[in-house]
Amino acid sequence: MPNKQQLEDFATQVRRDIVRQVHKVNSGHPGGSLGCTEFFTVLYQEIMDRKEGFDMDGKDEDLFFLSNGHISPVFYSVLARSGYFPVEELSTFRLIDSRLQGHPTTHEGLPGIRIASGSLGQGMSVAIGAANTKKLNGDNHLVYTLHGDGELQEGQNWEAIMYAAANKVDNLISTVDLNHQQIDGCTDDVLPMGSLKAKFEAFGWDVLEVKKGNNISAVIDGLNEAKSRTGKGKPVCVLLYTEMGHGVDYMMGSHAWHGVAPNDEQLEKALAQNPETLGDY
Protein backbone atom coordinates (compact mmCIF):
# COMPACT_ATOMS: atom_id res chain seq x y z
CA MET A 1 0.00 0.00 0.00
CA PRO A 2 1.37 3.44 -0.88
CA ASN A 3 1.66 5.97 1.95
CA LYS A 4 -0.19 9.27 1.94
CA GLN A 5 2.72 11.25 0.47
CA GLN A 6 3.06 8.73 -2.35
CA LEU A 7 -0.64 9.10 -3.11
CA GLU A 8 -0.30 12.91 -3.07
CA ASP A 9 2.63 12.66 -5.49
CA PHE A 10 0.69 10.29 -7.70
CA ALA A 11 -2.25 12.72 -7.81
CA THR A 12 0.02 15.66 -8.62
CA GLN A 13 1.54 13.76 -11.53
CA VAL A 14 -1.94 12.79 -12.75
CA ARG A 15 -2.88 16.48 -12.78
CA ARG A 16 0.14 17.21 -14.96
CA ASP A 17 -0.88 14.37 -17.28
CA ILE A 18 -4.44 15.74 -17.54
CA VAL A 19 -3.52 19.26 -18.55
CA ARG A 20 -0.74 18.09 -20.87
CA GLN A 21 -3.08 15.66 -22.67
CA VAL A 22 -5.79 18.22 -23.34
CA HIS A 23 -3.33 21.01 -24.14
CA LYS A 24 -1.60 18.98 -26.84
CA VAL A 25 -4.76 18.36 -28.85
CA ASN A 26 -6.55 21.53 -27.77
CA SER A 27 -9.59 19.49 -26.77
CA GLY A 28 -10.88 17.30 -23.98
CA HIS A 29 -12.31 17.81 -20.52
CA PRO A 30 -9.87 19.03 -17.86
CA GLY A 31 -12.33 20.42 -15.28
CA GLY A 32 -14.06 17.22 -14.18
CA SER A 33 -10.84 15.26 -14.62
CA LEU A 34 -8.94 17.47 -12.17
CA GLY A 35 -11.84 17.36 -9.72
CA CYS A 36 -11.81 13.55 -9.68
CA THR A 37 -8.05 13.08 -9.45
CA GLU A 38 -8.04 12.12 -5.77
CA PHE A 39 -10.92 9.69 -6.33
CA PHE A 40 -9.18 7.83 -9.17
CA THR A 41 -5.85 7.87 -7.37
CA VAL A 42 -7.26 6.38 -4.19
CA LEU A 43 -9.52 3.92 -6.01
CA TYR A 44 -6.78 2.39 -8.15
CA GLN A 45 -3.83 2.77 -5.77
CA GLU A 46 -5.48 2.01 -2.46
CA ILE A 47 -9.01 0.65 -2.57
CA MET A 48 -9.62 -1.79 -5.41
CA ASP A 49 -8.46 -5.39 -5.30
CA ARG A 50 -6.95 -5.71 -8.77
CA LYS A 51 -5.22 -8.58 -10.55
CA GLU A 52 -2.02 -8.18 -12.50
CA GLY A 53 -2.67 -7.52 -16.16
CA PHE A 54 -6.06 -7.16 -17.77
CA ASP A 55 -8.73 -9.44 -19.08
CA MET A 56 -12.24 -8.43 -20.05
CA ASP A 57 -14.04 -10.86 -17.72
CA GLY A 58 -12.33 -9.50 -14.61
CA LYS A 59 -13.17 -12.51 -12.48
CA ASP A 60 -11.88 -12.53 -8.90
CA GLU A 61 -11.06 -8.84 -8.87
CA ASP A 62 -12.89 -5.56 -8.27
CA LEU A 63 -14.22 -3.75 -11.34
CA PHE A 64 -14.66 -0.07 -12.12
CA PHE A 65 -16.94 1.55 -14.69
CA LEU A 66 -16.66 5.21 -15.65
CA SER A 67 -20.11 6.41 -16.67
CA ASN A 68 -19.21 10.06 -17.38
CA GLY A 69 -16.69 9.09 -20.03
CA HIS A 70 -15.68 12.62 -20.93
CA ILE A 71 -13.29 12.74 -17.98
CA SER A 72 -11.12 10.28 -19.89
CA PRO A 73 -7.87 12.25 -19.26
CA VAL A 74 -7.86 11.37 -15.55
CA PHE A 75 -8.94 7.78 -16.27
CA TYR A 76 -6.19 7.26 -18.86
CA SER A 77 -3.51 8.79 -16.68
CA VAL A 78 -4.42 6.66 -13.66
CA LEU A 79 -4.75 3.48 -15.75
CA ALA A 80 -1.35 4.06 -17.37
CA ARG A 81 0.35 4.87 -14.09
CA SER A 82 -1.32 1.81 -12.50
CA GLY A 83 0.34 -0.41 -15.08
CA TYR A 84 -2.41 -1.11 -17.62
CA PHE A 85 -0.56 0.38 -20.60
CA PRO A 86 2.62 2.38 -21.25
CA VAL A 87 2.59 5.90 -19.80
CA GLU A 88 4.08 7.19 -23.08
CA GLU A 89 0.82 6.31 -24.80
CA LEU A 90 -0.81 9.28 -23.06
CA SER A 91 0.86 11.39 -25.76
CA THR A 92 -1.55 9.87 -28.31
CA PHE A 93 -4.72 11.10 -26.54
CA ARG A 94 -7.42 11.99 -29.09
CA LEU A 95 -5.06 11.57 -32.06
CA ILE A 96 -5.82 9.44 -35.09
CA ASP A 97 -4.98 5.72 -34.75
CA SER A 98 -4.80 6.00 -30.96
CA ARG A 99 -6.27 3.61 -28.40
CA LEU A 100 -6.96 6.69 -26.26
CA GLN A 101 -10.15 7.86 -27.91
CA GLY A 102 -11.84 11.09 -26.85
CA HIS A 103 -14.18 8.98 -24.77
CA PRO A 104 -13.14 5.59 -23.40
CA THR A 105 -13.88 2.55 -25.51
CA THR A 106 -13.18 -1.16 -25.65
CA HIS A 107 -13.15 -0.92 -29.44
CA GLU A 108 -9.43 -0.20 -29.74
CA GLY A 109 -8.51 -2.76 -27.10
CA LEU A 110 -7.13 -0.39 -24.48
CA PRO A 111 -6.41 -2.41 -21.32
CA GLY A 112 -8.40 -1.26 -18.32
CA ILE A 113 -11.55 -0.33 -20.23
CA ARG A 114 -14.53 -2.70 -20.08
CA ILE A 115 -17.29 -0.60 -21.66
CA ALA A 116 -17.58 2.41 -23.92
CA SER A 117 -18.94 5.52 -22.23
CA GLY A 118 -19.53 9.07 -23.33
CA SER A 119 -23.19 9.09 -24.15
CA LEU A 120 -24.28 9.73 -20.59
CA GLY A 121 -26.37 7.76 -18.15
CA GLN A 122 -25.50 4.20 -19.15
CA GLY A 123 -22.72 3.20 -16.76
CA MET A 124 -24.75 2.26 -13.71
CA SER A 125 -26.86 -0.23 -15.67
CA VAL A 126 -23.70 -1.86 -17.01
CA ALA A 127 -22.21 -2.01 -13.53
CA ILE A 128 -25.36 -3.64 -12.15
CA GLY A 129 -25.05 -6.28 -14.86
CA ALA A 130 -21.42 -6.94 -13.94
CA ALA A 131 -22.43 -7.09 -10.27
CA ASN A 132 -25.19 -9.60 -11.08
CA THR A 133 -22.69 -11.78 -12.92
CA LYS A 134 -20.26 -11.62 -10.00
CA LYS A 135 -23.00 -12.98 -7.75
CA LEU A 136 -23.90 -15.73 -10.24
CA ASN A 137 -20.21 -16.66 -10.43
CA GLY A 138 -19.84 -16.74 -6.64
CA ASP A 139 -17.27 -13.95 -6.91
CA ASN A 140 -17.29 -11.76 -3.80
CA HIS A 141 -15.47 -8.83 -5.35
CA LEU A 142 -17.02 -5.40 -5.72
CA VAL A 143 -18.10 -3.22 -8.61
CA TYR A 144 -17.40 0.53 -8.52
CA THR A 145 -18.80 3.29 -10.69
CA LEU A 146 -18.38 7.02 -11.11
CA HIS A 147 -21.06 9.40 -12.38
CA GLY A 148 -21.21 13.12 -12.89
CA ASP A 149 -23.88 14.93 -10.90
CA GLY A 150 -25.22 16.59 -14.04
CA GLU A 151 -25.29 13.14 -15.62
CA LEU A 152 -28.01 12.14 -13.17
CA GLN A 153 -30.40 14.24 -15.25
CA GLU A 154 -30.43 11.29 -17.67
CA GLY A 155 -33.46 9.13 -16.90
CA GLN A 156 -31.76 5.76 -17.35
CA ASN A 157 -29.87 6.39 -14.10
CA TRP A 158 -33.10 6.34 -12.16
CA GLU A 159 -34.19 3.07 -13.78
CA ALA A 160 -30.87 1.65 -12.61
CA ILE A 161 -31.05 3.23 -9.15
CA MET A 162 -34.54 1.75 -8.68
CA TYR A 163 -33.48 -1.68 -9.91
CA ALA A 164 -30.30 -1.89 -7.83
CA ALA A 165 -32.10 -1.23 -4.55
CA ALA A 166 -35.11 -3.41 -5.34
CA ASN A 167 -32.84 -6.32 -6.26
CA LYS A 168 -30.38 -5.82 -3.39
CA VAL A 169 -27.35 -5.28 -5.60
CA ASP A 170 -25.18 -4.83 -2.52
CA ASN A 171 -21.83 -5.48 -4.22
CA LEU A 172 -22.05 -2.11 -5.97
CA ILE A 173 -20.54 1.22 -4.87
CA SER A 174 -21.65 4.12 -7.07
CA THR A 175 -19.91 7.43 -6.55
CA VAL A 176 -21.39 10.71 -7.72
CA ASP A 177 -18.93 13.48 -8.54
CA LEU A 178 -20.81 16.26 -6.82
CA ASN A 179 -19.17 19.38 -8.24
CA HIS A 180 -22.46 21.16 -8.97
CA GLN A 181 -21.32 22.09 -12.46
CA GLN A 182 -22.27 21.06 -15.96
CA ILE A 183 -21.51 22.47 -19.40
CA ASP A 184 -24.10 25.23 -19.38
CA GLY A 185 -23.48 26.31 -15.79
CA CYS A 186 -24.35 25.34 -12.24
CA THR A 187 -26.54 22.25 -11.97
CA ASP A 188 -28.92 24.30 -9.83
CA ASP A 189 -29.38 26.72 -12.71
CA VAL A 190 -29.56 24.19 -15.54
CA LEU A 191 -31.85 21.63 -13.92
CA PRO A 192 -31.93 21.56 -10.12
CA MET A 193 -31.88 18.01 -8.77
CA GLY A 194 -32.72 18.79 -5.17
CA SER A 195 -31.19 16.59 -2.51
CA LEU A 196 -29.41 13.68 -4.12
CA LYS A 197 -28.94 12.15 -0.69
CA ALA A 198 -32.69 12.18 -0.08
CA LYS A 199 -33.37 10.86 -3.55
CA PHE A 200 -30.94 7.91 -3.33
CA GLU A 201 -32.21 7.10 0.16
CA ALA A 202 -35.81 7.25 -1.02
CA PHE A 203 -34.91 4.72 -3.69
CA GLY A 204 -33.46 2.44 -1.00
CA TRP A 205 -29.71 3.03 -1.18
CA ASP A 206 -27.23 3.36 1.65
CA VAL A 207 -25.79 6.84 1.13
CA LEU A 208 -22.65 8.35 2.60
CA GLU A 209 -21.22 11.78 1.97
CA VAL A 210 -17.55 12.67 1.54
CA LYS A 211 -17.44 16.40 2.01
CA LYS A 212 -13.74 16.77 1.12
CA GLY A 213 -13.55 14.94 -2.17
CA ASN A 214 -10.22 16.54 -3.07
CA ASN A 215 -8.54 15.46 0.16
CA ILE A 216 -6.70 12.14 -0.14
CA SER A 217 -7.31 11.09 3.46
CA ALA A 218 -10.99 11.95 3.31
CA VAL A 219 -11.44 9.96 0.09
CA ILE A 220 -9.61 6.94 1.56
CA ASP A 221 -11.79 7.05 4.68
CA GLY A 222 -14.96 7.53 2.64
CA LEU A 223 -14.31 4.68 0.23
CA ASN A 224 -13.24 2.35 3.04
CA GLU A 225 -16.46 3.21 4.86
CA ALA A 226 -18.40 2.51 1.65
CA LYS A 227 -16.69 -0.89 1.34
CA SER A 228 -17.66 -1.74 4.89
CA ARG A 229 -21.30 -1.09 4.03
CA THR A 230 -21.44 -3.55 1.11
CA GLY A 231 -22.99 -6.98 1.46
CA LYS A 232 -25.77 -5.71 3.67
CA GLY A 233 -28.68 -5.82 1.26
CA LYS A 234 -28.34 -2.30 -0.17
CA PRO A 235 -26.31 -0.74 -2.96
CA VAL A 236 -24.00 1.97 -1.62
CA CYS A 237 -23.88 5.54 -2.94
CA VAL A 238 -20.98 7.88 -2.21
CA LEU A 239 -21.75 11.55 -2.70
CA LEU A 240 -18.28 12.94 -3.33
CA TYR A 241 -18.11 16.72 -2.97
CA THR A 242 -15.39 17.89 -5.34
CA GLU A 243 -14.30 21.07 -6.98
CA MET A 244 -14.21 21.19 -10.75
CA GLY A 245 -10.71 22.08 -11.92
CA HIS A 246 -9.17 21.42 -8.49
CA GLY A 247 -5.42 21.93 -8.36
CA VAL A 248 -5.21 24.53 -11.13
CA ASP A 249 -6.18 27.86 -9.60
CA TYR A 250 -7.67 29.55 -12.64
CA MET A 251 -9.86 26.51 -13.42
CA MET A 252 -11.15 25.89 -9.91
CA GLY A 253 -14.84 25.98 -9.14
CA SER A 254 -16.03 27.05 -12.57
CA HIS A 255 -17.90 25.26 -15.34
CA ALA A 256 -15.91 27.32 -17.85
CA TRP A 257 -13.19 24.64 -17.97
CA HIS A 258 -15.55 21.70 -18.38
CA GLY A 259 -14.48 21.09 -21.96
CA VAL A 260 -11.86 23.72 -22.73
CA ALA A 261 -8.11 23.17 -23.10
CA PRO A 262 -5.48 25.56 -21.69
CA ASN A 263 -3.28 27.55 -24.08
CA ASP A 264 0.55 27.47 -23.86
CA GLU A 265 0.76 30.13 -21.19
CA GLN A 266 -2.05 28.61 -19.14
CA LEU A 267 -0.41 25.19 -19.42
CA GLU A 268 2.83 26.51 -17.94
CA LYS A 269 0.91 28.06 -15.08
CA ALA A 270 -0.93 24.79 -14.41
CA LEU A 271 2.28 22.76 -14.51
CA ALA A 272 4.03 25.21 -12.16
CA GLN A 273 1.26 24.61 -9.65
CA ASN A 274 1.72 20.84 -10.00
CA PRO A 275 5.45 20.04 -10.03
CA GLU A 276 6.68 16.83 -11.63
CA THR A 277 6.73 13.91 -9.18
CA LEU A 278 6.77 10.55 -10.95
CA GLY A 279 8.18 11.77 -14.25
CA ASP A 280 6.38 13.17 -17.26
CA TYR A 281 5.64 10.93 -20.24
Partner: peptide
Protein backbone atom coordinates in the same frame (compact mmCIF):
# COMPACT_ATOMS: atom_id res chain seq x y z
CA UNK B 1 -27.18 -1.86 -20.01
CA UNK B 2 -27.51 -4.67 -17.47
CA UNK B 3 -27.28 -7.21 -20.30
CA UNK B 4 -24.09 -5.56 -21.58
CA UNK B 5 -22.61 -5.66 -18.08
CA UNK B 6 -23.57 -9.28 -17.50
CA UNK B 7 -21.34 -10.38 -20.38
CA UNK B 8 -18.39 -9.21 -18.29
CA UNK B 9 -17.66 -12.41 -16.39
CA UNK B 10 -18.92 -14.71 -19.12
Amino acid sequence: GIAAGMTIGG
